[in-house]
C-alpha cells in the first residue's frame, strides 16, 4: 500500500514537471528579470547596469503620449467592440435558427484564429492611397485620407477583436434561463424593461469578461497602431518595441512593461469585482 501511494505521487510529479519547469523558466523568471531591470540604470553603451533606483518609474511621463493614446483608445475600442458585438451575440444566442447557430458561431471564431497581421494588412490595403481613396477619386471625391488616423486604428481594433467580444457574451446569453424572460413579460414588463432588467443584467458577466480580455490585449497592442496609425498614433506597445529594439534603453522599457502588467491586473480585478456582484459563474470558450 505504501509503495503504491509513493508511485501515485511520483507519477503526479513526473506529469507536472515539464509544465512547471516551463512556467518557471519562461514566465516567472523572465517577469522577475524585468522587475529587477526596471529598478536598474541604463549602461552608457545601452543595456543594463545594476542599481536600485526609482528613476525609470519617475521618467514614465517621458512616454506620456503613448500612455494617453493607449489608455484612451483601449477602452474606447473595447466599448466600440461591445456595441457591435452585443446585438450579434444576442441574435446568435436567442434568435438564430437552431441549425444555423453552430455554423454562424464557427464563422465568428475562424477570424479570431487567423493571422491578425494579415487581417490588419487587408485594411491597410483597403484604406491606403491605392484602395478606397483611389476608387472614390473616380466619382470626384479627391484627396481623402483614411489611413494613419486614429479612426483607422479604431476600425482595425473593432475588426481585430470583435470575435473575442462576441464569444463570452454569447456564452452568458445562451445559458440564460428563458423562463425568466417569459415571467418578466407575463408580469407586465415592457420588452425594453425585460431586456434591461433581465437579459442585460444576467449577461453582464459575459460583457465584463469580453471587455477585460479585449482591453488587456489592446493595452499591449503593437500591430494595429503601427500598420494603420503610421507613425502618428503611438501605443505603449510601439514605445516598447522602440525602447528594446531600437534605442536599447532596457531599464526604462522594463519599467514601462511592469507598469503595463500592473494596469492589466487592475483591469482584471475591476472586471472581476463587477461581474461577481451580478452573478457567479464565468467561463470563456475561446475555441
Amino acid at each position: 500500500m505504501h509503495g503504491s501511494a509513493f508511485r501515485h505521487k511520483l507519477l503526479t510529479v513526473l506529469l507536472l514537471a515539464p509544465a512547471t519547469v516551463w512556467l518557471v523558466v519562461f514566465l516567472v523568471l523572465p517577469f522577475v528579470a524585468i522587475v529587477v531591470f526596471s529598478v536598474g540604470e541604463r549602461a552608457p553603451e545601452g543595456g543594463y547596469q545594476a542599481a536600485f533606483t526609482m528613476a525609470q518609474y519617475a521618467n514614465l511621463p517621458a512616454r506620456a503620449t503613448a500612455f494617453w493614446n493607449t489608455l484612451i483608445l483601449a477602452p474606447v475600442g473595447a466599448f466600440a467592440c461591445l456595441l457591435v458585438a452585443y446585438p450579434v451575440a444576442y441574435y446568435l444566442a436567442l434568435r438564430a435558427p437552431e441549425r444555423w447557430r453552430l455554423i454562424l458561431l464557427a464563422l465568428i471564431v475562424i477570424p479570431f484564429w487567423t493571422s491578425l497581421l494579415m487581417r490588419t494588412y487587408a485594411w491597410m490595403y483597403i484604406l491606403g492611397g491605392r484602395g478606397i481613396p483611389a476608387l472614390l477619386s473616380y466619382i470626384g471625391i479627391e484627396d481623402l485620407r483614411l489611413i494613419n488616423t486614429p479612426g483607422a486604428v479604431l476600425l482595425g481594433i473593432v475588426y481585430g477583436y470583435l470575435p473575442l467580444m462576441i464569444l463570452p457574451i454569447y456564452v452568458s446569453l445562451e445559458r440564460l434561463d428563458r423562463r425568466l424572460l417569459e415571467a418578466s413579460a407575463d408580469l407586465g414588463a415592457k420588452p425594453l424593461s425585460t431586456f434591461v432588467g433581465v437579459t442585460l443584467r444576467l449577461s453582464l458577466p459575459g460583457v465584463m469578461t469580453g471587455l477585460s480580455l479585449v482591453m488587456i490585449l489592446l493595452l499591449g497592442e503593437y500591430l494595429i497602431p503601427s500598420l494603420l496609425g503610421g507613425g502618428k498614433v503611438f501605443f505603449i506597445g510601439n514605445a516598447l518595441v522602440d525602447l528594446f529594439l531600437q534605442s536599447r534603453n532596457w531599464p526604462f522599457g522594463s519599467a514601462i512593461a511592469v507598469t503595463l502588467v500592473f494596469v492589466s491586473v487592475v483591469v482584471l480585478i475591476i472586471a472581476n469585482r463587477v461581474s461577481t456582484r451580478f452573478s457567479g459563474a464565468r467561463q470563456v470558450d475561446l475555441i
Binding site: A19, L23, F26, L27, P30, A33, I216, L217, V241
Partner: peptide, 27 residues
Amino acid sequence: IFDALLGAAIVVPGVVIGISTLVALVQ
C-alpha cells in the same frame, strides 16, 4: 497555483512575454 500561472501565460500580452523572455535569455 497552476491555474493562476497557466492563466497568466494566456492573458499576459504578447509584447510583455516577448520582452521579458528577451531580457531573461540575454542575461
